[in-house]
Every structure is written in structure tokens, then in C-alpha cells.
Design a protein around this nucleic acid. Sequence first.
DNA 1: CCAAAAGTGTTATGTCTACACCCATGA
DNA 2: TCATGGGTGTAGACATAACACTTTTGG
Lengths: 254, 254
Amino acid sequence: MTTKTGGGQVPAGYDPSRFPAFAVTVDVVILTMSGGRLHVLLVRRGVAPYKGMWAIPGGFKRPTETLGEAAKRELAQETGVDSASLLTQFGAYGDPGRDPRMNVVTVAYLAVIREVGAVVAGTDAAEAALIPVSEALNEQIELAFDHAQIVRDAVERVRADLDLTGIATAFVGPTFTLAELRTVYEAVWGVQLDGANFRRSVVTVDGWVIPTGRRARPGAPGGKPAELYRAGRMWKYSSPIRRSQPNERRKADS
Amino acid sequence: MTTKTGGGQVPAGYDPSRFPAFAVTVDVVILTMSGGRLHVLLVRRGVAPYKGMWAIPGGFKRPTETLGEAAKRELAQETGVDSASLLTQFGAYGDPGRDPRMNVVTVAYLAVIREVGAVVAGTDAAEAALIPVSEALNEQIELAFDHAQIVRDAVERVRADLDLTGIATAFVGPTFTLAELRTVYEAVWGVQLDGANFRRSVVTVDGWVIPTGRRARPGAPGGKPAELYRAGRMWKYSSPIRRSQPNERRKADS
DNA sequence: CCAAAAGTGTTATGTCTACACCCATGA
DNA sequence: TCATGGGTGTAGACATAACACTTTTGG
């Protein structure tokens, strides 16, 4: 605790002219959909500390680049995704001792990429894999550093951003069926949505989805082929789908 | 640009074993309501760089404290608010050259405090004042460093948090009238809300506000004395008031 | 023809908004 | 008693959810 305000100019035993040095890193939580489930890209650490343990990709920030540029660089290094993919800063972590080697403050980014087959070809990582977030968070897989907390926060952020931004479209390709898009909401929120009502929410208002003439081929068990859409301009501002509140409405008794 | 992924283990001209040193600071955007308007606490810098210019309070993080603890310490130093006031981390800023002296990455916090008279009695600041955010953002007042951007982001965050969290109650005292609470939403969102409907949203569901028997004295021009409430448990999870979408619903023609 | 998935129609229910109206106070 | 703001009632507009029903494909 410092001395109460009003008196001391400088807290006891601290000289503000000399400031401590920190290493600053950027970590990227890369999320994607695979088989209707939300996955996170993890790399197996090749060096100490936590050698051999799963971690999220990241690295040191350079003095000549912005934080966002550092994140984009790490993302490209890890996935080859060079495009202006969706990158959102969502937190900074600086607890003392979070890295046993030194004082490190890390700035965490969330990246959403569409399902890609063999995007995993890391550089300085011994191994990389897409892990279902349900497994990554259920203590089944132990993550290095405070990365478990960082992944938890990232998932929480994407859940919130789903009905605040157009982040849902970052999970799907340039063209998509409404079922694909619906799956994103269902997987991230862990709910089930009525296909009919979902369609109405998206289609009856201009600017959300733009029909391309083409249709997707149905899967193995048949079914009517779905129309393919492109994302419209409205996704820049918000989302046509809202998370329904857990219904504890109406007064208790009365 | 770095070399494309897949080949080079290490980007050209960069040795990852030697990492650059950064100073890490914590800056706090302190917001409060005054006279029905949203204000931000600014301090006049007593030292170079940007000496004499307005800035948001902040300081160096110490290696032995968490980022949150550093923010709480800065808040207490600047305002004397020692309680577990609402403190939210909302961004990190690390553009090269944002501080002319050295490489600095700052982690920004948003603090909301209730209206207090003469809370302003800084320590290492020559002067401190509550400035309406409308003025602080309209280029009328030039802020040091990238603090204008940081304040903009803080205000944007509080706008979003208003219908996502119970942050509204942090602006008012332990007891408050519904008009006071409504003023928070109106000032932050820049809208006008129907008092009758506002009341219903808050009162008809249990857990938002708890009536204390007491009533507030009306202001100068009279009026019915308003009932005083305490905040209920529900504010921990969300808000009873939702920002109405700018109504561009329904398809263009048809 | 059958199963399965896309897409349409319909209806009950709930929520939001505007606004009329009554209530209680200070001056 | 008048102006002002607190508080209640209510009707229409609007949005949501549930579900029956039709369409179109692969096998």
C-alpha cells in the first residue's frame, strides 16, 4: 500500500526517475470453426520455460512496430494468413511472475479465421494443432503461462462481440450458406437457433446478406441445396442476431 | 514486412534471444457525472515532455504489482478514492514514438466515480480539473501523448458497457433517485429517455433497485419528491436499459 | 418414394414507445 | 394556484418464438 494521498509526492521507497524495464510480448488467440465446433490454435512450446506444453502463439514486440502490427506479424508467422483478417485487441496481462524468466507484459489479440484445412505450419513451434475450446478450457489440457485465462477471456470476448459486431462473418468464407452462418452463433453461444427465424432476421432487412445466384451442394444425406450469400455492408456496424437474455423476467411473486 | 511463413525460422535481422526493453505505464481515464454531463478528470503536466498540457493521470507499473493494482494506486493518488471503485481495463497503446523519450507501452483503465465535490488534489500534477468530455474531445483542448485517442476509446467503452454491465450505478451514490440514474444513460448515450418507461424497466423486475423508505427533496422549482433507491443484485450481470438501435429496420421498398 | 435440409406462412405472446393523465411539492 | 417534476395507465406498433407446412435435393 502507498501512503494516503494528499501528502507524499512520491510513494515511499520509489524513485520515479528510474523506471523498471519490461519485456512486451503480443499473444494471439486464433479461433476458427471446425465441424460445427469452436476451435483454438495452440502450439507446443519448443523451448523452456514450459517446454513441451501447449500455448498460444506470440512473440516479442519490436520498438519499430505498433502492437497491431506485431499481432499481424505473429498471425502470419503461425498461420500464413496474410490478409487483413479480423484482429481485435482484448486484454493486457502483467501479473508479477507470470513469466518466470523476467518481467513480461503481454498484450493479447483475438484473431478469427475461416475454416482452413492444413493452415498449421508453424515456424518456431515444434507442433501446432486446432483444439476444441471446450477441451482447452476444461483443465484437460494444461496451458503454459497464464494462457488458460487468456483463452477464456478471448472466448468471452467473441461471445460478446457476436451480437455487437459483425465478427460472425469472419468465421465463414467469402460466400456462405445461412446454415453455416447460423452454426457460428450456435457454437459460440452454445444455443440452438430456429433456422426459419434466423433466416428472417438476416434476409428481411437489406444490407446483411447479398444473394449470389449460386447454390451450395447438399451434403451426404440430401436436402434442398442452400443459396450462397455474400456479407453485406451492415456487418460493419453490428449484427442482425441478438443473444436472447436468460429469461428471468417478470417480478418474483405478485 | 517479414519473409513469408513456411521458410525462415527467424525473420530477417532479428535475434529473438535479445528482446527490447520497454517502460510500461498505466493510465486511468476517470469519468464522472457533473451537472448532467459526463466529465473526465485531467491533470496539467508539471514536467516535460508536453509540460503544461492536459493529460490523463498515470504512472509506471512496478514489477511487484499487477496491472490492476497499479491502476488502483494511480486512481487513489489522483482522487483519494480508495474504495474498490469500478476499474476496467480497456486498451493497450504502444505505437512507436508515442512517447518521445523512450519505448513506452501503456495499459489504459477506465474508472467511474460518483460526483464528488473537491476530489481533485493531485500529487505530482501541477493542477487537476474535471472537463466535460465534449470539450476534451472536440480538439478544443489538446491532450498530451495519444491521450485524446485514449479518452475517445474510454468513452466508447463506457457507452457499450452501459447496456452490458451495471456500470451505470457506479456514477451515482449508494442511494439515488431514478431521475439521477436516468441522467447517466442520457448523458453517456446522448439521448433522451421517457421517464415513465425508464421507471417501468427498472422497477417492474425484481433485483434492479430496492426502495429505501426515504425520499429526496425536490429542487428549486418544486416537483414531487422522488423515492430513493439502492442498487440491487442484478446490476452485477447486465443492465435493465437497452440502447435502442437507430431504426433502419424493414427492407428498403416492398 | 423417403429422408433430410432449405425455405415460407401464421399466430400467440411479449416488449417498447408515445402520450394522456394524476400526484405532490416549493414558491 | 401554478409550474415542475414524479409516478401510473393504456393502446398501438413492433419484435420474437414456436411450429406447421411446402420445396428440392440425394439415394
